[in-house]
Design a protein around this nucleic acid. Sequence first.
RNA 1: CCAGAAGUUUGAACACUCGCAAGUCCUUUUAGGACUUGAGGAAAGUCCGGGCUCCAUAGGGCAAAAUGCUUGGUAACACCAAGGCGGAGAGAUCCGAUGGAAAGUGCAACAGAAAGUAAACCGCCUAGAUUUUUAAUUUAGGUAAGGGUGAAACAGUGAGGUAAGAGCUCACUUAUCUUGUGGGUAACCAUAAGGUACGGUAAACCCCGUUUGGAGCAAGAUCAUGCAGAGAAGUUGAGGCGGCCCGCUGAUUCUCGGGUAGAUUGCUUGAGAUUUAUAGUGAUGUAAAUCCUAGAUAGAUGAGUGUAGAUGAGUGCGUAAAGCACUUUGAACAGAACCCGGCUUAUAGAGCAUCUGGGAGC
RNA 2: GGGCUUAUAGUGUAACGGAUAGCAUACCUGACUUCGGAUCAGUUGGUAGGGGUUCGAAUCCUCUUAGGCCUA
Length: 118
Amino acid sequence: MKTLKKKRDFQRVFDGGRFITKRESPIKVYALKEGTDLMVGIMIRKTVINAVGRNYTKRQIKAIFLDLEKEGFSGQYILMPTKGFVKSEFKEKKDRLRRILQNFHNKQNRNPNHRKNL
RNA sequence: CCAGAAGUUUGAACACUCGCAAGUCCUUUUAGGACUUGAGGAAAGUCCGGGCUCCAUAGGGCAAAAUGCUUGGUAACACCAAGGCGGAGAGAUCCGAUGGAAAGUGCAACAGAAAGUAAACCGCCUAGAUUUUUAAUUUAGGUAAGGGUGAAACAGUGAGGUAAGAGCUCACUUAUCUUGUGGGUAACCAUAAGGUACGGUAAACCCCGUUUGGAGCAAGAUCAUGCAGAGAAGUUGAGGCGGCCCGCUGAUUCUCGGGUAGAUUGCUUGAGAUUUAUAGUGAUGUAAAUCCUAGAUAGAUGAGUGUAGAUGAGUGCGUAAAGCACUUUGAACAGAACCCGGCUUAUAGAGCAUCUGGGAGC
RNA sequence: GGGCUUAUAGUGUAACGGAUAGCAUACCUGACUUCGGAUCAGUUGGUAGGGGUUCGAAUCCUCUUAGGCCUA
């Protein structure tokens, strides 16, 4: 797992990718299916929580994505957590993120077949 | 035992799995392995003061700003200690931007007669006039003792004195000034004599004393990468010393357009830490020994699970308190970014030692 | 890193240290109307939070909180 650091990395994801979560979801995820590596960028607003909390969520998300990498996920993601996500438990966070990524991957794999059938 | 006051220390343990940064070593070679180390008392706010770097070795004047009892401490301070004075409290103790109002200017709503070189509303007294004549009205004076207003009204009490009164006089008291004496380094305190009764506000302007050159690690130094030049001013002094003038310096500077934006250093050995001795009421100083203890760069220093578990809540036993058992909950404020000394603000809980008042027992 | 500045009713704004903190609009109540709007009458609601100076503070000083702007 690697982290997105430079401004141009973020810009590339924003240009090529799209939102894969619903509007009322507590965490917003921007995704781009590209390459075999798993890359994550994290954006937390200053108004959401103080510096200690921001670092804490960042570490938790890193730990979650390390596990997800072992399960075989790939792609480039930008995460934007809100207050609801930050205050939830570790297990909730992990389940939610895994579900989001699974949905995204299933759609990516299914869509070409779907078109052929039509 | 209850109620308070003030100080200081600490501020989340163990095991397993996975993972981050720096350094050292090893293997193989630019990846992997082993070992060691890795966030606070406030790292925060950025409110003061310094170090360090560049600009004159940081110079003079004006302006501006800060500060304001005394002595000491310190690299320095708007910090700290001890003391003086004033205020709060029954006390331990706490609070104080605490120089000058007799250099000048201003301000004081409402109320009140009057808010400052003054003042007569009611009242008191004297004289005259009129009338309804031991009284009332009115005119001219005297009067700050009494009333009422206000946050604040030119000293308080008593006696004498007087037409009535008044520091007008006297005694004691209060405040303050001058001089002397004694104590204290000093702020100041005590006391004697003589004078005075001169209001408040400077966190209003102001006056007086003291202090302050500017910029900030994106300071500054070095190496790479990249591009395209054009115009204007300038040794008859551009620009700089970021408020202005003097003074100093002495060749580049400005505008438009184009281009690159990576790395090294500064960077952690320091007004350092710990222990002991010693000087001092204390802040703090001195000496010796030992130790080296984060240096990231969108920002590392951890994540999960389990054990144990402060505290809170509930239930049961118990007359009640204390206590015991079971269930559940599962730990405050907060993240270094050049470095130090303070201040301020946030902070669950735990420990240590001290003082005051009250109650009960011996 | 270094400076400056703001906070007044739901909203937009006034206010010399002395007011019961003003004005507009919105909200609410009543009248008018068959009903609604417009109109008329009336009510509610506020100095960002602590502490100090002063007889008296929205105003002066100071700390905190939340914004905004300039600059390197």
